[in-house]
Write a protein that binds this DNA or RNA. Structure first.
Length: 584
RNA sequence: GGAGUGGUAGCUCAGUUGGUUAGAGUGCCUGCCUGUCACGCAGGAUGUCGCGGGUUCAAAUCCCGUCCACUCCGCCA
């Protein structure tokens, strides 16, 4: 051991001891006659004093920020008025005896812990960025979270079993990352979008309870909360129904929040149906910290002399709805314009509103509505003086998405949150999404069990519910799962409904269909987006903030410069030829 | 594939209507300084104004193209 103590762990009890510390120079203050060094290690910072009579004083003068030092010295109480309450170790300091420079450092491209450094620079010098307090804290917390989860899983008899990264391309879902096979020219592995089928096979193998904290890969365009490689907490169990699984996952989540960040999520998460979530919040991942709901006013608008409202009110694929914001009458014209532009992202052609001022309602649309209708709107939305009512009138999807997102946007701007934490289960998902051409896609994935038997499913595919469930916390989908299909005939029925031919089903999922015929137990599970969960728990909006070495929005690594060209020889070995896209 | 924002000193940014030698803070270097803790004081060095082209007597500034980063739509079973 070249050190006896961590910097951040030295305090009053150590006064009088000779300690040896190692760490980085967080800051140096040279007063000519006396030099102060703030030395930083994994546990914190401690101040070292070097007096002119120290044999290493002239060496100390050459020290710069981020040098790595080994220092031995005497722990002393700071003099009266000299303590620093901002430092945990601020009551004491180390009077240096020996100073050894273990390594020097060039001036860093940015100051560690400086705020506002552009992400481009941070990612290029990620190893320096990770020295910052904020990143250290987040990655520490991440480790405590995964450790807690492993403990919980282990306690409940879940086995940690690894599944392959080099696997088979899937026909549906996200775009696959592909890996060329050298030994099989022209063929490719795919990196898994999730271990879904392998964990089901493990149930068929009789392991009964499986979990894995595992990377997943999806080659799709990125967002603030999406990375091309991300981590799932992947879970599967046999012989449990959805309520049992949800209860167990709920327990884990509650205990995790309590023990790691001391947040109380309550004893039981509320549940909402998919249909209600969409109707009331416009989105399938409702943020119920916000005490505002979208209110349908189709019936009211059927006969008004205002086509923009009456037409969608009379069309079954459309919707007219209102969003009342308490105290929103103070929103300026300029900000309403801003919101109008915001909802246009989701296809809304405008954003009608009524403000309730002291002198009564004011709005550009009042002239199209008679007083009776206006009063009914006010009544149905419960609006009071000082409120604003926004309206959406368009295709249902556009109204839901624009008012749903507007609801969250306005709530953020005006700080309309009721509580700090709001977990909720979303259940009763439709089994299928209906495409414009009438074909079906799985809402969850093709292995999700429907509530009904296979004959009923065939008759009612477009309205059938699945046995899927999503966990949403603060408007962020942190996990989802389902009871899976465990009978081969049902699986074949679902694949058929999805438009997958017998031949294609055999090619893509033959191994699963085969396995289902050898005593597959009823099973189900869940997958948590671990990065998103950690984002919520660390209070950041950027997934890159909870990943040590993340990719940019175009899926490059600014640190290593990946992806790069490779030598032609390698491509020849892989029998891969490059054909560049043509440029116009 | 599309929309928006940004790119000027190592870093964070300002830069007016196109007009002299492109600035500030911070960092860096040098000197001074024995109690600071974002130490202080004095001095100094540092620019591919993202890149390419165009307009102009003159471009960081206007126009066209392009690259990079970020946010969003599409996409993400």
């Amino acid at each position: 051991m070249i050190r006896t103590h961590y910097c951040g762990k030295i305090n009053l009890p150590n006064v009088g001891q000779i300690v040896e510390i190692c760490g980085w120079v967080n800051r140096k203050r040279n007063h000519g006659g006396v030099i102060f060094l703030d030395i930083r290690d994994i546990r914190g910072i401690v101040q070292v004093v070097i007096n002119p009579d120290n044999k290493d004083f002239s060496l100390a003068e050459t020290i710069r920020n981020e040098f790595v030092l080994k220092i031995s010295g005497l722990v002393i109480v700071r003099g009266k008025g000299l303590s620093n309450p901002k430092l945990i170790s601020g009551e004491i300091e180390i009077k240096a005896q020996n100073i050894e420079i273990l390594n020097t450092s060039k001036p860093t491209p940015f100051q560690i812990n400086a705020i506002n450094i552009s992400e481009e620079i941070r990612l290029k010098y990620r190893y320096l960025d990770l020295r910052s307090d904020a990143m250290q804290k987040r990655l520490h917390l991440r480790s405590r979270i995964t450790h807690y989860i492993r403990k919980f899983m282990d306690k409940h008899d879940f086995l940690d079993i690894e599944t392959p990264f080099l696997t088979k391309a899937t026909p549906e879902g996200a775009r696959d990352y592909l890996v060329p096979s050298r030994t099989h020219p022209g063929k490719f592995f795919a990196l898994p979008q999730s271990p879904q089928l392998f964990k089901q096979l493990l149930m068929m193998s009789g392991f009964e309870r499986y979990y894995q904290i595992v990377k997943c890969f999806r080659d799709e365009d990125l967002r603030a909360d999406r990375q091309p490689e991300f981590t799932q907490l992947d879970i599967e169990t046999s012989f449990m129904n959805e309520n049992e699984i949800m209860t167990m996952m709920e327990r884990m989540t509650i205990d995790l929040f309590k023990s790691v960040i001391n947040v109380d999520l309550g004893n039981k998460f509320p549940t909402i149906t998919y249909k209600d979530a969409i109707e009331k919040y416009g989105l399938d991942c409702p943020d119920i910290r916000i005490p505002i709901q979208i209110i349908s006013i189709d019936k009211l608008m059927k006969n008004v002399d205002f086509k923009i409202f009456s037409e969608p009110a009379n069309n079954s694929n459309s919707r007219v709805a209102a969003l009342k914001i308490s105290g929103g009458a103070s929103i300026s014209r300029k900000n309403i314009d801003k919101y109008t532009k915001y909802v246009s992202i989701y296809g809304a052609k405008g954003l009608a509103y009524i403000k309730l001022n002291k002198n009564g309602p004011t709005s550009p649309i009042l002239k199209f509505l008679d007083d009776e209708i206006t009063n009914k709107i006010i009544e149905i939305t419960g609006a009071k003086t000082g409120d604003i009512i926004f309206f959406g009138a368009d295709k249902t999807k556009i109204v839901n998405e624009s008012l749903g997102n507007l609801r969250e946007k306005v709530a953020k701007d005006l700080n309309l949150f009721d509580t700090q934490w709001a977990p909720i289960w979303v259940v009763d998902f439709p089994m299928f999404k209906i495409n414009d051409n009438g074909s079906l896609n799985a809402t969850h994935h093709p292995f999700t069990a429907p509530i009904v038997d296979k004959e009923t499913l065939k008759q009612t595919a477009k309205t059938a519910f699945s046995r899927a469930y999503d966990l949403v916390i603060n408007g962020s989908e942190v996990g989802g799962g389902s009871i899976r299909i465990h009978q081969v005939e049902m699986q074949k029925t679902v694949l058929k409904l999805l438009g997958i031919s017998n031949q294609e089903a055999q090619d893509k999922f033959g191994f699963l269909l085969d396995a289902l015929e050898y005593g597959c137990p009823p099973h189900g599970g869940m997958a948590f987006g671990l990065d998103r969960l950690i984002m919520i728990m660390t209070g950041t909006d950027l997934i890159r903030d909870v990943i040590a070495f993340p990719k940019t929005q175009t899926a490059t690594c600014l640190l290593t410069d990946a992806p790069t060209n490779v030598p032609k020889k390698l491509l020849r070995e892989l029998n891969v030829k490059i054909s560049m896209p043509e440029k116009n």
